[in-house]
């Protein structure tokens, strides 16, 4: 998935990351987020990307990018090599959901995960109207979607609980990128979580 500048979750993620921190961006696309973090926060960044065109684009952007498939784990990275491991709008495309979450917290102190909320009211209405949802945060038709996992904020939090992951912080945004304070599972289109685990 290619990042675009000006995405509200990028601003949230940037806000959570301390200057000089080591950041791993999984599914880094053309490296836009990392470039933003390097330019604005002075982080040390590495990206992982599977797609040839994105790997080339990231190298053009001067980003350290490692070509690889997230489904096969993060073998090239040592334990606790990063302060933050970012998985931006990608978790819903990964089959091995638990595996990648575990790997993120093996190689990093903190996981930052953003994903589209399938229980967002417009998505629910769309399904009630008989069609799969297409929106700002779910910009695909059912037949060309890279998404393989369909879940909600409550689903994700239940999984974190089952896996013993600690939610340090959560931000929920509506389709316009404005923060959602109440009824998040119904009114939120995109969720961003900071996760850690007990050590």
């Amino acid at each position: 998935m290619t990042h675009t500048l000006g995405r509200p979750d990028f601003e949230l993620i940037a806000h959570w990351i301390e200057p000089g921190h080591r950041v791993l961006d999984l599914g880094c696309g053309d490296g836009t987020l990392l470039k933003h973090l390097i330019d604005t926060r002075g982080v040390q960044g590495v990206g992982v990307e599977i797609d040839d065109a994105n790997v080339l684009a990231a190298i053009k952007n001067g980003i350290n990018v490692i070509q690889g498939n997230l489904e096969r784990g993060l073998d090239v990275f040592a334990d606790q090599a990063f302060d933050h491991v970012v998985l931006s709008r990608t978790l819903q495309t990964v089959r091995h959901t638990e595996g990648i979450l575990r790997e993120m917290l093996r190689v990093g102190c903190e996981a930052v995960v953003s994903f589209p909320n399938f229980a967002y009211w417009k998505n629910l209405r769309s399904v009630l109207d008989g069609r799969m949802p297409v929106s700002e945060d779910l910009p695909y038709q059912w037949y060309d979607s890279p998404n393989v996992r369909f879940f909600t904020l409550l689903d994700f939090e239940a999984l974190c609980d089952k896996m013993g992951l600690i939610i340090r912080e959560r931000s929920v945004l509506d389709e316009a990128g404005n923060p959602v304070e109440t009824e998040a599972n119904f009114l939120g289109s995109l969720a961003v979580y900071r996760l850690t685990c007990k050590r």
């Binding site: 190298i59 350290n64 490692i66 090239v76 990275f77 040592a78």
Partner: peptide, 13 residues
Amino acid sequence: AALLANGRNVSYA
């Protein structure tokens, strides 16, 4: 992996 472990700048295709 050895370069990453040392924090070197590395890209891999």
